[in-house]
Design a protein around this nucleic acid. Structure first.
Lengths: 222, 222
DNA sequence: GATTTAACTGAATCAATATTCATTAATGTC
DNA sequence: GACATTAATGAATATTGATTCAGTTAAATC
């Protein structure tokens, strides 16, 4: 193929081969990178995988980010779930029973976090904690610890009001969180493979509600 | 340093620089590889990391295994938790209440799986499921699905005998497994970082017992 | 519609690390 | 204690994939 034919091909091409999108690119690249990282892991994801998933070629991500590690960090910082604040407010404003509040919180969490890309980030951080200890600590201190605090507060309120019996607080908080965690994690690993599904994969929200009911029934003061 | 000095150093060396261990090497290498893979992930682990952790140099693993991938596969197949059979037998032979049986099973599981290297493999498979789909399916079919089955049977027995109320079986099984999974996973990620500990990290067995008690209390037929 | 700007491409480069293999040395045998 | 055998070493090589940058082209401006 000679220069002329290439030229004419290009000139005749009815649609552009690519488009300039200075504003949208960074977000597109981060979205693509997150899903690739979650699927394959950080190391196994090639820059070209990210580029292809974002609909660009492998040079383009470097126009917007220093390197692969900076992409990872940008994701971890950016996908940050400011959502906790909403849950905090929900808990403060709510004036029904602690059980009803917990149901609301789980529903809200599923909607905003559990079934969102944030859930994938959570799995990713678990897998990469040892490779990015600073980020992992950030994530722990800004997300995991406060989540525990919040749940702890709600639980304590229920105990104080006599709605719940006096259970070991710390362990109970973790027990309440466990179904949320496994749902996120499982749905981003085995859950992706055809045929590898368990109860919680088919109907995540239903599972979360049932698991919560079970524990709440166990918390009842009678 | 000339040839002679090297020679004399070698000759004077009071202890051998290495030992021949044809029989023991494969297991040593697999053990080392498992802990490295669990810590850093499959891709981020260098063959030299594995060799160093096994106390050999980087050529040695290749005397016993084709390549890195074969090491991973050998681990996944070999670390296989034949332990399920023991749990199966435990369940079949037990003649106390279903609650007591579940407590026994959890204690046994923690001892044999939860705090063993198998737990690390579990975290690893979760992270690598998409990169090794065949292995992941094997793992799912041979381990996860049968575990679910077993728990399901025990639960059903408790329901049939009137010990438990009639709960949605599938979701309840997953709810029972969730604390076990989070304990394994968490202790091999954030749990490794100094200061990043939650209730279940400090006293895993205590947490598992408390979480089980909570759910059992919720299962009670009253 | 010609000119300018800068977003985007992708072949070329470079670095990291997987793998090989010629050499060395531990151990068993005579 | 010399010899043969073969496990183990580690420098050399091959491969993979991250990063660069000279050239191309979409789109803004005049």
């Amino acid at each position: 193929m000679n220069i002329d034919s290439v030229k004419s091909m290009t000139e005749n091409c009815p649609i552009a081969r690519w488009r300039r999108k200075k504003e949208a690119r960074p977000a597109e690249i981060l979205d693509a990178a997150l899903s690739q990282f979650v699927e394959k892991g950080y190391r196994a994801t090639k820059m070209e995988d990210i580029a292809r998933a974002a609909g660009v070629t492998k040079g383009t991500p470097y126009l917007y980010f220093q390197n692969k590690e900076e992409i990872f960090k940008a994701i971890a910082r950016g996908t940050f779930v400011a959502n906790l604040q909403q849950l905090d407010r929900l808990a403060d404003d709510f004036d029904g029973s602690a059980s009803a509040l917990l149901h609301q919180m789980v529903a809200h969490w599923w909607q905003e976090v559990g079934c969102s890309p944030s859930a994938g980030l959570c799995k990713l951080m678990i897998a990469e904690a040892a490779n990015f200890p600073e980020l992992a600590r950030f994530y722990f201190e800004e997300l995991i610890a406060p989540s525990n605090q919040l749940l702890s507060r709600v639980l304590q309120r229920g105990i104080d009001s006599g709605e719940f019996r006096a259970v070991p607080l710390v362990h109970t908080v973790d027990a309440l969180l466990a179904p949320l965690l496994t749902t996120m994690i499982f749905s981003h690993s085995f859950g992706q493979l055809p045929g590898c599904c368990i109860g919680s994969t088919k109907d995540p929200l239903g599972f979360l509600q049932d698991a919560l009911d079970l524990v709440l029934h166990g918390l009842k003061n009678n």
